[in-house]
Simulated assay, not measured.
Amino acid sequence: MDRNGRGRPGTVVDVTPQETPSRDAADGPWHCRLHVVSGKGGTGKTTAAGALAVALATGGRRVLLTEVEGRQQIAQLFDTPPLPYAERKVASAPGGGEVFALAIDAEEALLEYLEMFYNLRRAGRALERIGAVDFATTIAPGVRDVLLTGKVKEAVNRPDGTRPGGRAYDAVVLDAPPTGRITRFLNVSAEVAGLARMGPIRTQADSVMAVMRSEQTAVHLVTLLEEMPVQETVDGVAELRAAGLRVGGVIVNMVRTPLLADEDLARAGAGRLDVEELAAGVKAAGIAPAAGLVDALVAEAAQHARRVALERAERGEIDALGRPVYELPLVADGVDIGVIYQFAELLRMQRMVG
């Protein structure tokens, strides 16, 4: 971050494996209607998605937080009962805002689709009873993704004449699949091209892509300052750009503040710490400076210095992507609803949302 606590855009580096320019979303604050949040498993993408939803709702807005992986992580995050296939309020935001949540189920989405467009919900229930719905979505995963993303698209575009702006929600946040699958999940037109070149499935896929590739959508990636998550983030950005999907910001989660000043880190990494000074500091703390204790502290300081150097190198990889970077700190005692509100405020302070 810069000295004002804002995300750093960094230098734009074109890693798109196409000749066309990157279609990255403009730098924040993000005024999109659909915020897709992805990240390698274990990076805390659901936590980041929940915090972003609360941040967007702050000031009196209504936001829908959705998930598509069937793991009920939103319910766990907000400490509520498991979510049904129905939108339910899970949190209030400062200034009168509201966060609703929805766990999208492919089978329920198909039944809703049949009812909405063909008035065939009873026929859909019959298909469900004989297992045809599950069979169809299993042998053709692209169809499942069309159904899931189609429900997200419907929520983004749903009209409501009683609300400012004429939409049911001011923004929708999607807790999406991990980075290894995010491009295929969002790029539904390509996924169903071999299955349906025309007809309702193809029409639905194309209408989904009209939203996913529009100016109202941004894909944000969550990472840790570790080699594998960062590499997945770099690869994910390249794949999203190649597919014409707009990359938003990068949220670096579980950030740890160095415990030593830069000069001490350099000495610790090089094995040049002043052992006598360290022993004096231990003694001043009221602890007997036994040789074994001092040696253990020297080894721990060296390990800390190596970790800080690695994290700074990985941060350089993230900065080189040319996207705004936002930071959320490591929370030693785990994430609860109070932490979600704190993270939401941090994202607002860093101007991820307006």
Results as ranks from 00 to 15, higher is better:
Q73E: 15
A205D: 04
D14C: 12
A290W: 05
T43I: 03
A176G: 12
R163A: 08
R323A: 08
A91L: 03
S189M: 06
R129F: 07
L240K: 00
S189W: 04
D262K: 08
D274S: 13
L293M: 02
V172R: 11
L34R: 05
Q76P: 02
R272P: 12
N187Y: 07
L346N: 00
G334N: 09
P82E: 06
K40Y: 01
E263C: 07
R202P: 08
G249V: 02
A313V: 13
R197K: 09
E227F: 07
E69W: 14
E314R: 10
V208R: 02
Y113H: 06
G316T: 14
G42E: 02
E98W: 05
N119E: 13
A210Q: 14
I139Q: 11
I201R: 07
E107R: 15
E112R: 05
Q342R: 11
I139V: 03
S207L: 08
E345A: 12
G42M: 03
K283F: 11
L64W: 00
A51E: 03
D27S: 05
L195A: 03
L56K: 07
E19C: 00
P9R: 09
V15A: 09
D145S: 12
G28E: 14
A285T: 06
L245P: 05
A279H: 10
V282K: 13
G334S: 09
G39L: 04
L346Y: 05
L330E: 10
A210V: 08
P82G: 02
M198C: 00
T46D: 13
D206K: 03
E311V: 05
L120H: 10
L148Y: 04
D295V: 14
T203F: 04
L195H: 08
K151G: 05
R267C: 12
N4V: 13
I139R: 11
M254Y: 05
G42I: 01
R202A: 15
G97P: 13
V12P: 10
Y169N: 07
P21M: 13
D2P: 00
V133A: 09
L127V: 05
L240S: 02
T257R: 11
A25L: 15
T43W: 00
A242E: 03
V13D: 08
G10K: 02
P159E: 10
V353E: 01
A302L: 08
V99M: 01
G10H: 07
E112W: 01
M254S: 09
P178T: 01
T46L: 13
D295M: 14
A155F: 00
T138A: 11
A309L: 15
D295Y: 10
L147H: 04
